[in-house]
Nucleic acid binder design. Sequence first.
DNA 1: CAAAGTTCCTGCGAGC
DNA 2: TGCTCGCAGGAACTTT
Length: 301
Amino acid sequence: MPELPEVETVRTGLEQAWVGRTITQLTLRREGLRFPFPEDMVNRLIGQKITRVRRRAKYLLIDTSDNLVFLSHLGMSGRYTLITPTETPRYLQVDASSNHSKFGALTGFEGRHDHMEFRFDDGSVAVYTDPRRFGIADLFDRAEEPIQPLLEHLGPEPLENWTAQDAANRCKGKRSPIKTTLLDQRFVVGVGNIYACEALHRSGISPTRPTHKLVRKDGKPTKALFELVAQVKEVLIAAIAVGGSTLNDFAAVDGTLGYFGHHFQVYDREDGPCLKEDCNGTIERIVQSNRSTFLCPRCQK
DNA sequence: CAAAGTTCCTGCGAGC
DNA sequence: TGCTCGCAGGAACTTT
């Protein structure tokens, strides 16, 4: 599910729901996700008031009143479901009509992949669900944030003053294909497989082009690299706009609707017609670094 | 069979 | 020749 725009959409949703509320209960239904949960996470979080919800790369950072930071990464399949005390959740009704008793006494959300359940002082509940368990939950003191292993090697935020010159500096001498570089979180953060494909298509750059060829001999960005940096920003901004427009819907906090509402130009469109004006090419699928890449060989050189 | 993400391991080439 | 370093590519994690 989540690349930067989807995580940003979730961030906005959690910010609206959580800031100002105090955690009264936290239930963990397993030892951990990708990594074990910190031993004392439950005890440290109970009683904490949420003060901010930030995002760094694809990580959600939830600040609390005692300067703790709850880190949440959604991996491939993580999502949050929010239940407010006044409304009857729609899918709880659906579940209740089947005689499958997977809803428990507390919340009605005790599916096999519901790993964390937060309860707040206003009676609201949030459930973290993640079938593949590639997600991460962690807790640390705010003062330790600069030395967090998960965060310290991250590259620039693409929507915060990221420049073509910065990109050129990091592209220099790299032999790997530009698609692979786009996915490297040290080059730029937040871009995943879908938006890497989309940005390259918009830029007219072949995913297989060696990264260093996007830098001039004098170390300056080529025209193509200027274009790529611009298109990464544009595709991310457009996707955030789509996600944001769905936010009033209670189901949207899981970020899924962000992808739903978005129709891609190349991703997952193998054998389809290239949608670029006057191109008439056919979308191909290739594999790079064990991941699917979609491209139009006609307009991406 | 493939999947939106990240980390870690291995193998290779460069350089000393 | 042999060793170390860094980079690039691939496997692994897991469930639907």
